[in-house]
Amino acid sequence: MTEYKLVVVGAGGVGKSALTIQLIQNHFVDEYDPTIEDSYRKQVVIDGETCLLDILDTAGQEEYSAMRDQYMRTGEGFLCVFAINNTKSFEDIHHYREQIKRVKDSEDVPMVLVGNKCDLPSRTVDTKQAQDLARSYGIPFIETSAKTRQGVDDAFYTLVREIRKHKEKMSKDGKKKKKKSKTKCVIM
Protein backbone atom coordinates (compact mmCIF):
# COMPACT_ATOMS: atom_id res chain seq x y z
CA MET A 1 0.00 0.00 0.00
CA THR A 2 1.38 3.38 -1.01
CA GLU A 3 1.77 5.99 1.72
CA TYR A 4 1.43 9.69 0.95
CA LYS A 5 2.85 12.38 3.24
CA LEU A 6 0.53 15.37 3.00
CA VAL A 7 1.12 18.66 4.78
CA VAL A 8 -1.63 21.23 5.43
CA VAL A 9 -0.27 24.79 5.54
CA GLY A 10 -1.81 28.24 5.84
CA ALA A 11 -2.32 31.16 8.19
CA GLY A 12 -3.80 30.75 11.67
CA GLY A 13 -7.57 30.36 11.82
CA VAL A 14 -8.20 29.39 8.17
CA GLY A 15 -9.55 25.94 9.10
CA LYS A 16 -6.61 23.61 8.49
CA SER A 17 -7.45 21.44 11.51
CA ALA A 18 -11.19 21.55 10.78
CA LEU A 19 -10.56 20.30 7.21
CA THR A 20 -8.25 17.53 8.41
CA ILE A 21 -10.58 16.37 11.20
CA GLN A 22 -13.54 16.46 8.81
CA LEU A 23 -11.63 14.14 6.44
CA ILE A 24 -10.39 11.79 9.18
CA GLN A 25 -13.31 11.70 11.63
CA ASN A 26 -16.26 13.01 9.60
CA HIS A 27 -17.16 15.76 12.01
CA PHE A 28 -16.81 19.53 12.23
CA VAL A 29 -14.87 21.16 15.04
CA ASP A 30 -16.14 24.70 15.44
CA GLU A 31 -14.12 25.88 18.45
CA TYR A 32 -10.75 27.40 17.58
CA ASP A 33 -7.82 25.80 19.35
CA PRO A 34 -4.53 26.86 17.73
CA THR A 35 -2.51 23.85 16.58
CA ILE A 36 1.18 23.40 17.23
CA GLU A 37 1.43 20.24 15.15
CA ASP A 38 -0.86 17.22 14.81
CA SER A 39 -0.46 14.10 12.72
CA TYR A 40 -3.29 11.94 11.37
CA ARG A 41 -3.41 8.74 9.33
CA LYS A 42 -6.25 7.39 7.24
CA GLN A 43 -6.56 4.55 4.75
CA VAL A 44 -8.58 5.50 1.67
CA VAL A 45 -9.18 4.27 -1.86
CA ILE A 46 -8.36 6.83 -4.56
CA ASP A 47 -8.93 5.86 -8.20
CA GLY A 48 -9.05 2.18 -7.25
CA GLU A 49 -5.76 2.27 -5.32
CA THR A 50 -5.79 1.70 -1.56
CA CYS A 51 -3.43 4.16 0.05
CA LEU A 52 -2.48 5.49 3.44
CA LEU A 53 -2.65 9.23 3.95
CA ASP A 54 -0.20 10.53 6.53
CA ILE A 55 -1.43 14.07 7.15
CA LEU A 56 0.48 16.70 9.08
CA ASP A 57 -1.71 19.53 10.34
CA THR A 58 0.59 22.46 11.01
CA ALA A 59 0.68 25.64 13.08
CA GLY A 60 -0.43 28.77 11.26
CA GLN A 61 0.71 31.10 14.02
CA GLU A 62 3.86 33.03 13.22
CA GLU A 63 5.54 32.06 16.52
CA TYR A 64 5.83 28.48 15.22
CA SER A 65 7.30 29.42 11.85
CA ALA A 66 10.72 27.99 12.80
CA MET A 67 9.18 24.50 12.71
CA ARG A 68 8.05 24.90 9.08
CA ASP A 69 11.30 23.98 7.34
CA GLN A 70 11.36 20.62 9.11
CA TYR A 71 7.87 19.48 8.09
CA MET A 72 8.26 20.94 4.61
CA ARG A 73 11.33 18.74 4.09
CA THR A 74 9.36 15.55 4.83
CA GLY A 75 6.12 16.41 3.00
CA GLU A 76 5.45 15.04 -0.49
CA GLY A 77 2.52 17.35 -1.21
CA PHE A 78 0.99 20.46 0.30
CA LEU A 79 -2.55 21.77 0.76
CA CYS A 80 -2.13 25.56 0.81
CA VAL A 81 -5.21 26.76 2.68
CA PHE A 82 -6.68 30.24 2.96
CA ALA A 83 -10.09 31.39 4.22
CA ILE A 84 -12.35 33.00 1.61
CA ASN A 85 -13.34 35.60 4.23
CA ASN A 86 -9.74 36.57 5.07
CA THR A 87 -7.79 38.44 2.38
CA LYS A 88 -4.56 38.42 4.43
CA SER A 89 -4.62 34.60 4.57
CA PHE A 90 -4.94 34.57 0.76
CA GLU A 91 -1.99 36.96 0.39
CA ASP A 92 0.06 34.76 2.77
CA ILE A 93 -0.21 31.80 0.36
CA HIS A 94 2.60 33.27 -1.75
CA HIS A 95 4.97 33.16 1.24
CA TYR A 96 4.08 29.55 2.08
CA ARG A 97 4.59 28.50 -1.53
CA GLU A 98 7.96 30.26 -1.78
CA GLN A 99 9.12 28.68 1.48
CA ILE A 100 8.06 25.20 0.29
CA LYS A 101 9.92 25.66 -3.01
CA ARG A 102 13.03 26.90 -1.17
CA VAL A 103 13.05 24.05 1.37
CA LYS A 104 12.34 21.40 -1.29
CA ASP A 105 14.86 23.10 -3.62
CA SER A 106 12.42 22.66 -6.50
CA GLU A 107 10.04 24.71 -8.62
CA ASP A 108 7.89 21.62 -9.12
CA VAL A 109 6.30 20.55 -5.82
CA PRO A 110 2.81 18.96 -5.70
CA MET A 111 0.38 21.52 -4.23
CA VAL A 112 -3.32 22.30 -4.19
CA LEU A 113 -4.70 25.76 -3.42
CA VAL A 114 -7.68 25.47 -1.06
CA GLY A 115 -10.20 28.24 -0.36
CA ASN A 116 -11.90 27.17 2.86
CA LYS A 117 -15.07 28.44 4.58
CA CYS A 118 -17.02 28.71 1.30
CA ASP A 119 -20.23 28.23 3.34
CA LEU A 120 -19.81 31.75 4.78
CA PRO A 121 -21.61 34.68 3.11
CA SER A 122 -18.88 37.20 4.02
CA ARG A 123 -16.49 36.46 1.14
CA THR A 124 -13.55 38.86 0.64
CA VAL A 125 -11.54 36.68 -1.77
CA ASP A 126 -13.25 36.25 -5.12
CA THR A 127 -13.28 32.75 -6.65
CA LYS A 128 -11.77 34.16 -9.85
CA GLN A 129 -8.86 35.70 -7.90
CA ALA A 130 -8.06 32.30 -6.40
CA GLN A 131 -8.46 30.51 -9.75
CA ASP A 132 -6.11 33.02 -11.37
CA LEU A 133 -3.51 32.54 -8.64
CA ALA A 134 -3.71 28.74 -8.91
CA ARG A 135 -3.42 28.96 -12.70
CA SER A 136 -0.33 31.18 -12.41
CA TYR A 137 1.21 28.57 -10.06
CA GLY A 138 0.13 25.69 -12.32
CA ILE A 139 -1.76 23.97 -9.49
CA PRO A 140 -5.41 22.96 -8.91
CA PHE A 141 -7.79 25.16 -6.89
CA ILE A 142 -10.64 23.76 -4.80
CA GLU A 143 -13.15 25.57 -2.62
CA THR A 144 -14.07 23.76 0.57
CA SER A 145 -16.21 24.02 3.65
CA ALA A 146 -15.03 22.02 6.64
CA LYS A 147 -18.46 22.75 8.15
CA THR A 148 -20.60 21.27 5.35
CA ARG A 149 -17.84 18.89 4.11
CA GLN A 150 -18.07 20.39 0.60
CA GLY A 151 -14.88 19.71 -1.35
CA VAL A 152 -13.01 18.16 1.60
CA ASP A 153 -12.37 14.73 0.06
CA ASP A 154 -11.76 16.37 -3.31
CA ALA A 155 -9.00 18.62 -1.90
CA PHE A 156 -7.03 15.80 -0.28
CA TYR A 157 -7.62 13.32 -3.12
CA THR A 158 -6.60 15.89 -5.74
CA LEU A 159 -3.35 16.39 -3.84
CA VAL A 160 -2.69 12.63 -3.92
CA ARG A 161 -3.28 12.68 -7.68
CA GLU A 162 -0.83 15.58 -8.02
CA ILE A 163 1.79 13.60 -6.07
CA ARG A 164 1.21 10.57 -8.32
CA LYS A 165 1.65 12.72 -11.45
CA HIS A 166 4.82 14.20 -9.99
CA LYS A 167 6.28 10.77 -9.14
CA GLU A 168 5.42 9.49 -12.61
CA LYS A 169 7.09 12.49 -14.22
CA MET A 170 10.18 12.10 -12.03
CA SER A 171 10.53 8.41 -12.86
CA LYS A 172 10.20 9.16 -16.60
CA ASP A 173 12.85 11.86 -16.28
CA GLY A 174 15.04 9.41 -14.37
CA LYS A 175 14.68 6.77 -17.11
CA LYS A 176 15.61 9.32 -19.78
CA LYS A 177 18.75 10.24 -17.85
CA LYS A 178 19.67 6.58 -17.37
CA LYS A 179 19.25 5.89 -21.10
CA LYS A 180 21.51 8.81 -21.94
CA SER A 181 24.19 7.67 -19.52
CA LYS A 182 24.40 4.23 -21.18
CA THR A 183 25.98 5.73 -24.30
CA LYS A 184 29.62 4.72 -24.36
CA CYS A 185 32.59 6.34 -25.93
CA VAL A 186 35.21 4.09 -27.53
CA ILE A 187 38.68 5.48 -28.12
CA MET A 188 40.86 3.55 -30.60
Rank of each mutant, 00 (worst) to 15 (best):
T2V: 07
Y4V: 05
Y4G: 05
K5G: 03
L6C: 04
L6D: 00
L6S: 00
V7I: 10
V7N: 10
V9G: 02
G13R: 06
G13A: 08
G13H: 03
V14W: 00
V14Y: 01
L19H: 11
T20V: 06
T20L: 10
T20G: 14
I21F: 13
L23C: 11
I24E: 14
H27L: 11
V29Q: 12
V29F: 09
D30C: 08
D30V: 07
E31Q: 06
E31S: 09
D38K: 03
D38S: 08
K42V: 06
K42W: 03
V45W: 05
I46T: 05
I46K: 08
D47Y: 03
G48Y: 03
D54P: 06
I55T: 10
G60W: 04
G60E: 12
Q61K: 08
Q61R: 07
E62L: 05
M67T: 14
D69E: 07
R73F: 03
G75R: 06
G77V: 11
L79Y: 00
L79N: 00
C80V: 15
V81P: 02
V81L: 09
F82T: 11
A83F: 01
S89L: 06
F90N: 01
H94S: 07
H95I: 10
H95F: 01
Y96W: 13
E98L: 02
Q99E: 13
Q99M: 09
Q99C: 08
Q99D: 01
R102W: 01
K104A: 06
D105S: 04
E107S: 10
E107P: 05
D108A: 04
M111L: 05
M111Y: 01
M111F: 09
V112H: 01
L113P: 00
N116H: 15
C118M: 07
D119L: 01
D119T: 01
D119C: 04
L120G: 11
L120F: 09
P121I: 08
V125D: 11
D126L: 07
D126A: 10
T127G: 11
T127S: 13
Q129G: 04
D132M: 08
D132L: 08
L133A: 10
L133I: 10
A134P: 02
A134E: 01
A134K: 04
R135K: 07
S136E: 11
Y137H: 08
G138T: 02
G138N: 12
I139H: 06
F141W: 12
E143L: 09
T144F: 02
S145I: 03
T148S: 11
R149F: 12
R149E: 14
Q150S: 03
D153E: 15
D153P: 08
A155L: 07
F156D: 00
Y157I: 15
Y157H: 14
V160N: 01
V160I: 13
V160L: 05
I163E: 05
I163Y: 02
H166F: 13
K167A: 07
K169L: 11
K172L: 14
K175F: 05
K180L: 15
K184G: 13
C185T: 15
C185F: 03
I187Q: 15
M188R: 15
M188E: 15
M188H: 13
